[in-house]
């Protein structure tokens, strides 16, 4: 199988973010999307701990320990940025003011159900953060993830087996094997990573793929 690298998946997703969009990026792989937005587009990122207009990492010597993003990484501000408290930050998210949220996932179902906060493992405490607020309020939910989990099990499924973050909320899924849109009929293939056939990708998917 030909698999895209994580940066290639992030770049593919970034190509779909239009100019002037207000976007929230989740922790981990979603966070990398910011590095790949095509030249000439002004995209404003919100970080839920209280900043709209997140800039790149600071230069050495210019770090501010109280200027961080949701991943707890040091960041900077862009011209036009604003700080706000948690209640206002989640009003931005829940109130439908953002255009796009990019999230990671354990599982996505063909009806758009998303599971990304808890597994069935009781030993580890569940951690939800802002994921449920984002899926409740942001009109476009884009998922970026590996096509299969570490054990090689499919993550695109007919139904999620893990507890849901939200029901019927995902619009598109970007993986190392392609781009998949959630439609009323199930997952539709938008494109496959170069070099793979539909049958090969179908074999690693737990739901029927529509051409």
């Amino acid at each position: 199988m030909m698999r895209l690298t994580e940066d290639q998946i992030a770049a593919r997703l970034a190509a779909d973010i239009p100019d002037s969009a207000y976007v929230n990026l989740g922790i981990g792989l979603p966070n990398r999307v910011a590095q790949h937005v095509p030249e000439g587009r002004e995209v404003f990122y919100q970080t839920e701990n209280g900043l709209l207009g997140v800039g790149p990492a600071p230069l050495p010597g210019q770090e501010d320990p109280e200027l961080i993003d949701a991943s707890k990484k040091l960041v900077t501000t862009l011209p036009g940025a604003a700080f706000f408290d948690q209640a206002e930050s989640f009003a931005i998210m829940r109130g439908g003011h953002l255009n796009i949220a990019v999230l990671g996932a354990y599982q996505v179902a063909q009806n758009g159900d998303l599971a990304n906060w808890a597994t069935l493992d009781d030993k580890h405490p569940p951690a939800v953060g802002g994921a449920m607020d984002l899926v409740a309020g942001v009109p476009q939910i884009l998922v970026i993830m590996r096509h299969t989990d570490r054990a090689g099990e499919p993550k695109l499924l007919e139904r999620c087996t893990y507890p849901l973050t939200g029901a019927g909320v995902v619009n598109r899924v970007y993986t190392d094997l392609g781009v998949f849109a959630v439609t009323p009929d199930g997952f539709r293939v938008v494109e496959l990573a170069a070099g793979n056939s539909l049958d090969e990708v179908q074999a690693e998917t737990g739901a029927r793929l529509l051409a």
Partner: peptide, 30 residues
């Protein structure tokens, strides 16, 4: 465990003298 925005708003509601609020967050989940 409380969703982050629900946590902030529950705290704000207590400070603002509200008896609670209706949120779409977590609807249909555990």
């Amino acid at each position: 465990v409380v969703p982050q925005g629900t946590l902030a708003e529950r705290i704000r509601a207590a400070g603002a003298g509200l008896g609670g609020f209706l949120t779409p967050t977590a609807y249909g989940t555990l």
